[in-house]
Write a protein that binds this DNA or RNA. Structure first.
Lengths: 235, 235
DNA sequence: CGCGATATTATGTATAGACATAATAATCTG
DNA sequence: CAGATTATTATGTCTATACATAATATCGCG
């Protein structure tokens, strides 16, 4: 009974994972309650709770009050992707960061951006397109619409030295956002910038951010061919 | 002083977020210690700890022992992406799931797969290619190499009714993995399956999973044109 | 003044006990 | 027997206290 005494929540988590992988607790199996496990492991219930709660957040376990804790039937692999500031991302690759403003104008946003920024009544927005370079070659093209009703200060910014990407994170923090990854065909202009052919597959990120109920900005990031988002998954 | 009494950790988290967004605590600012906040909010330190720890995990705060807690300078947006079983993903879209085995053979893996599965000495692996359909139209093509040294049972599986994707999650659970998102050009065969043209941009997921030190499988999922991974980010 | 030993401090975590909450099981009632 | 009510139960969370740990600040000494 008295196992070698699991004293911290990580050790308990490891032991639970071991039992799952060793098929002692197969998928769908309802595992003992927190009090039982605490007694078995010789620790407080709160410690077991921390271990199991963390595993539930990772998608390994499913917990429901009264019903108990069971091993997930279909352990979805939950990957957490960090999307840093572009300059930071390039510098962390060991490359020299470069920036070039492509265009900047105030206009009524097209349908796709309008739906995100001002769904009720069309309002003028700032449209900025800028190129981020890594070691003098094009890394990503930032095509951004900024709501001038939410961030009127943006109208005073030239964006010729500092990118909207960088300016916004320190100026207009968001409460929540919405992000999508996809693939697209390079336009003629993009193909020219990335030194590839029109229609070449490029990786695309679409992101919109809000401050409470008010939309701040919506951006499309088109990356150079070959770009990949890479991360680990822990089960 | 005595604010309207924040009693649970979520309320404290909301209040901390409010102060950050209201610029009371600007980026880089060192916020009061846990004991001080506990006194101000009229709750236990553990409650404050839970609130701040969760915010640190989300990337909003940066905490270091002795140094204290500060508002992150560059709040990276951390998106958590759920990658479910393909059948489940299709059914949750409200589509009818279909499956078709394309090819199945035992062979020595090519360089890309060999590096992941058996970096030391080449070993025969099972190569399965299968098509997942949503409402009778191609949804994703699964191109998978399975290590027969780690999962010898796979040799007995025909994979003509059940996909490797689904069989593996319930048979060979992984301890950790590695995942990458990218864009690629459709091959002639893929273009035929997806009813598009050769070279069309397609979204691709490459994933490799391990059971401790032994590689289980490496898979490339090629999605139909227009496919997007979508998720939210909470700041 | 430089450098290593020591003190300080904020976070990290464990514990026992208590109450809250949600979901199920059991029971009562018409 | 159906439907509403109550009891039970496992998780969720809070509290107060204690000790652990890591990083910094300070002190003492050559």
């Amino acid at each position: 009974m008295s196992q070698p005494q699991f004293k911290n929540w990580q050790a308990i988590q490891d032991e639970v994972l071991r039992r799952i992988h060793a098929r002692e607790w197969p998928p769908g199996h309802v595992i003992p309650g927190e009090v039982d496990l605490a007694a078995e492991f010789g620790c407080a219930r709160a410690t077991v709770n921390r271990a199991l709660r963390t595993l539930a957040e990772a998608g390994i376990l499913e917990r429901r009050r009264k019903a108990g804790t069971r091993v997930a039937l279909h352990p979805v692999s939950r990957a957490t992707v960090d999307i840093p500031i572009i300059r930071q991302e390039i510098e962390e690759r060991g490359s020299a960061y470069g920036y070039r403003l492509v265009s900047r104008e105030t206009a009524l946003p097209p349908a796709r951006a309008r739906i995100m920024l001002c769904p009720d009544t069309p309002a003028p927005c700032l449209h900025v397109r800028a190129l981020h370079l890594a070691d003098d070659s094009a890394y990503t093209l930032e095509d951004r619409w900024i709501s001038l009703t939410t961030v009127p200060e943006a109208a005073d910014q030239a964006f010729d030295r500092i990118s909207p990407n960088e300016w916004l994170v320190t100026t207009a923090p968001f409460t929540h956002g919405d992000i999508a990854f996809g693939a697209a065909a390079a336009t003629a202009e993009e193909a020219g910038l990335f030194e590839t052919e029109t229609g070449a597959p490029v990786f695309v990120i679409d992101r919109t951010t809000w401050d409470h109920a008010r939309a701040i900005t919506t951006v499309r990031l088109v990356y150079a061919p070959g770009y990949r988002i890479h991360t680990g998954i822990g089960g």
